[in-house]
Deep mutational scan, measured.
Amino acid sequence: SEEEEEEWRRAKERGEEIIILGILWKPNDEEAERRIKEALRRV
């Protein structure tokens, strides 16, 4: 969703871990980033 995407962007800017759509994303975690982008597209 729009607000999840916004939340994720803010976490990326701050360089902090975030759990979004049930996926743990850490800074520079390209695999998780790809999965999150896929999940955001499906929503």
Rank of each mutant, 00 (worst) to 15 (best):
S1G: 15
S1L: 15
S1T: 14
S1I: 15
S1M: 15
S1Q: 13
S1D: 12
S1R: 13
E2T: 15
E2V: 14
E2R: 14
E2H: 15
E2W: 15
E2S: 15
E3Q: 14
E3W: 15
E3A: 14
E3R: 14
E3K: 14
E3P: 13
E3D: 14
E3L: 13
E4S: 13
E4T: 13
E4D: 13
E4H: 14
E5W: 14
E5I: 10
E5N: 09
E5F: 12
E5L: 13
E5K: 04
E5G: 04
E5Y: 13
E6C: 14
E6N: 09
E6R: 06
E6P: 04
E6Y: 12
E6F: 10
E6I: 08
E7M: 15
E7R: 15
E7V: 12
E7F: 15
W8K: 01
W8N: 00
W8H: 01
W8T: 01
W8L: 10
W8C: 07
W8I: 05
W8A: 01
R9W: 10
R9Q: 11
R9V: 08
R9L: 12
R9F: 09
R9M: 10
R9K: 10
R9N: 09
R9Y: 10
R10P: 00
R10L: 08
R10V: 07
R10F: 06
A11E: 02
A11D: 01
K12H: 11
K12E: 01
K12L: 09
K12M: 14
K12A: 06
E13A: 13
E13L: 14
E13Y: 08
E13R: 08
R14F: 07
R14S: 10
R14W: 06
R14Y: 07
R14I: 10
R14A: 11
R14T: 08
R14V: 08
R14P: 02
R14N: 11
G15A: 04
G15F: 06
E16A: 07
E16V: 12
E16N: 07
E16D: 10
E17D: 08
E17L: 09
E17T: 13
E17R: 07
E17S: 13
E17N: 10
E17Q: 11
E17P: 15
E17F: 10
E17A: 12
I18P: 00
I18M: 04
I18G: 00
I18D: 01
I18W: 07
I18V: 12
I18Y: 09
I18F: 12
I19P: 01
I19W: 15
I19L: 12
I19R: 08
I19Y: 13
I19M: 11
I19G: 02
I20N: 00
I20E: 00
I20V: 09
I20G: 00
L21I: 05
L21N: 03
L21D: 02
L21M: 14
L21G: 03
L21Q: 09
L21T: 02
G22L: 12
G22H: 02
G22W: 10
G22K: 00
G22R: 00
G22P: 00
G22I: 13
I23H: 03
I23P: 01
I23M: 02
I23T: 03
L24F: 06
L24Y: 07
L24E: 03
L24N: 04
L24A: 05
L24W: 03
W25L: 01
W25R: 00
W25Y: 03
K26F: 05
K26Q: 06
K26L: 06
K26A: 09
K26T: 12
K26R: 14
K26D: 03
P27N: 03
P27G: 03
P27Q: 03
P27F: 05
P27C: 12
P27R: 01
P27W: 05
P27S: 02
N28E: 09
N28P: 04
N28A: 07
N28Y: 10
N28I: 01
N28D: 13
D29E: 02
D29R: 03
D29A: 03
D29P: 02
D29F: 03
D29Q: 04
E30G: 08
E30V: 11
E30I: 13
E30D: 13
E30K: 10
E30T: 09
E30A: 11
E31V: 09
E31W: 05
A32F: 01
A32W: 02
A32H: 01
A32E: 03
A32R: 02
A32L: 05
E33I: 05
E33T: 11
E33P: 00
E33R: 04
E33N: 06
E33H: 04
R34S: 11
R34H: 07
R34D: 06
R34L: 12
R34W: 10
R34N: 11
R34F: 10
R35D: 05
R35G: 04
R35V: 05
R35I: 07
R35F: 04
R35L: 13
R35T: 05
I36Q: 01
I36W: 04
I36P: 00
I36M: 04
I36N: 00
I36F: 05
I36R: 01
K37D: 10
K37P: 00
K37L: 15
K37W: 13
K37G: 05
K37Y: 12
K37H: 11
K37S: 09
E38K: 04
E38Y: 01
E38H: 04
E38I: 09
E38Q: 10
E38N: 06
E38T: 05
A39W: 07
A39L: 12
A39S: 03
A39V: 06
A39T: 04
L40P: 00
L40A: 02
L40Y: 02
L40N: 00
L40G: 00
L40T: 00
L40V: 03
L40M: 08
L40I: 10
R41A: 11
R41M: 09
R41C: 14
R41K: 11
R41F: 08
R42E: 08
R42D: 06
R42C: 10
R42W: 07
R42N: 09
R42H: 08
R42Q: 12
R42L: 12
V43L: 15
V43K: 15
V43F: 15
V43D: 07
V43M: 14
